[in-house]
Write a protein that binds this DNA or RNA. Structure first.
Lengths: 150, 150
DNA sequence: GTATCTGCAAAACATTTGCAATTCT
DNA sequence: AGAATTGCAAATGTTTTGCAGATAC
């Protein structure tokens, strides 16, 4: 994988958020920011384990929980079977493709959400999740059986 | 619990959606539509089991999966630990209270969601989930320690 | 009587926890 | 040395699966 962010920068970033930048945490953090796949604990573990043979899943769980706690990542509710994570904590929507399973981001500014919570309710986080079929999978479907009305 | 919907009506409703209305399915369905608590499998099981001693969790899982498959219920992604279900499949938002754990509905018409998916993406379902503190818990907090700035 | 549905037990996963070994300063 | 972090193994909790018995038509 091509790294877009240097490890030293990640170390500083973690430090700034009160997280001691251990080797494992830096690697996990870098994986999270350099991928757009909104990975699960297991995806991260399986990607890094060949390279860090002693890595354990607990460490991945611990690190991600810490990132969420310090507000530099969010856990996203999109997959019923396992929790997935996102280093982008700004307001944006998620689209989960029912065919390929990929999770895509889409723009979502506060003016596009015009609902009102009941009186006295205060929200600290809002997630918008769509389920459907992504453009890539829609293309494959139509080219595989151009005339079939599936 | 006070039943708001008759069992015979539920049986017809299930039938209309291609679900054979067994005794267990009717009871599970009635529980789901007569409660506003967005229950989990376990909440349903524990509520019905005293009354239907032979009921098993598998049956609750099976029935709910069937309801979702036939489009008369939806599983809602709000709780990280267990899946919760809702018999209201119309567009509406969910609010999950971090303190009491209750899930509330709130109105959400299509005009209040003004975002655009990427080109070629089609969504068949959209969920809006907020996390925060409900009015009841906010009241308790402020009355318990009126001057404390927690 | 046959097909479907149910219930139990076991299996399969995801996640958490306790603790000992390791690492960092 | 002392504090924090890591890794393993066991525990926990949710969900799925296989199958035998029960039920419905």
């Amino acid at each position: 994988m091509e790294y877009l962010v240097k490890e030293s920068e990640s170390g500083n970033y973690l430090n700034e958020h009160g997280i001691k930048p251990s080797y494992q945490r830096i690697r996990i953090w870098n994986y999270l920011i350099n991928t757009k796949e909104h990975p699960s604990v297991d995806m991260i573990y399986r990607s890094l384990a060949p390279d860090i043979p002693t890595l354990s899943r607990s460490t991945v769980y611990n690190s991600l929980s810490l990132f969420v706690e310090r507000g530099i990542a969010q856990s996203i509710l999109i997959d019923e079977s396992e929790t997935r994570y996102d280093a982008d904590v700004s307001l944006h929507g998620h689209f989960h493709c029912r065919i390929c399973g990929r999770v895509y981001d889409f723009a979502l500014d506060s003016s596009s959400l015009k609902f009102r919570l009941p009186q006295g309710f205060t929200a600290d986080s809002t997630q918008v999740c769509c389920q459907g079929i992504c453009s890539g999978c829609a293309d494959k479907k139509s080219s595989a059986s151009p005339s079939a009305a599936r």
